[in-house]
Nucleic acid binder design. Sequence first.
DNA 1: GGCCAGGTGTAAA
DNA 2: TTTACACATGGC
Length: 220
Amino acid sequence: MDQLKDFLLEIYNLLYSEYGPQGWWPADNWFEVIVGAVLTQNTSWKNVEKAIQNLKLNNLLEPERLYKLSEQELAQFIRPAGFYNLKAKRLKNLIELLRKYDFDFKKTAAQIKREELLSVNGVGKETADSILLYAFDKPIFVVDNYTRRLLQRLEVVCGEADYEEIQSLFHGISSDLQCYKEYHALIVRHVKQICLKNKPKCGDCCIGMFCKYSILSTKN
DNA sequence: GGCCAGGTGTAAA
DNA sequence: TTTACACATGGC
C-alpha cells in the first residue's frame, strides 16, 4: 500500500512538472463554484462559461437573486449549458439547501455535510465532492471518469472499481487540500490533452512510461 | 452530420 | 442489482 502511495505521488509530481498549477476551480467565489458544478454535469466547460456569463451580465450570480428567480426564467439564462430545464431544477434544489444556512458562506462551510448534499436531487457524488472541495475547502478528493480512466490505464484499479474505492486511494496519499485540488485538475487537463491528439500512443506523454495501454484503449 | 462534453435520476428488466 | 434512457447545447 505504501508502494501505491508513492506511485500516485510520483504521477502527481510528473503531471505537476508537465502542466504546472491549474488554478481550479475557475470561479470568482464559492457560489459560482456551486453553480458551475451543476452546470458542468456531462457538459463541456466552454458551454458552462457562456451560461455563467449570462447570469453575471444580468447580475444574477448570487444566491438570493437566484432564489427569487423562477425556475423557468433561470432555465432561459443557462440554456447554453444544455439540459437547461433539468439543471434549473437542480440549481433550485441546491439553493433551497443553502437557504437553510441563510446563504451564508461561513455558516454553510462550518456545517454542511456530504450526505446533506447527496440528498439533494440532482447532486451526485462528483458534484457533491466538487462543491465540498472547491467551494468549501474540505479535503475531499473528486473522482470523475477521467480519474477512473487514468487509474485503469495505470492498472491501479479495474473497471468495476467504485467511487469511494478510488477516492480512498487518493485520501491515502495525502490530506493536503491544495494537493487534492491540483491533482484532480491535473488529471482532467492531462486526459483531455492526450485524447485531443490524433493517435495517442503509450510512452507518448509525461507519465507514458507507466502506461501499458493507450489512454484511448478500452482495454482494462 | 456525428460524436462528445469536468453526471444524475428514473424506470424497466 | 444492472441496464437503458432522458436530459440539450455548442464545438470540432
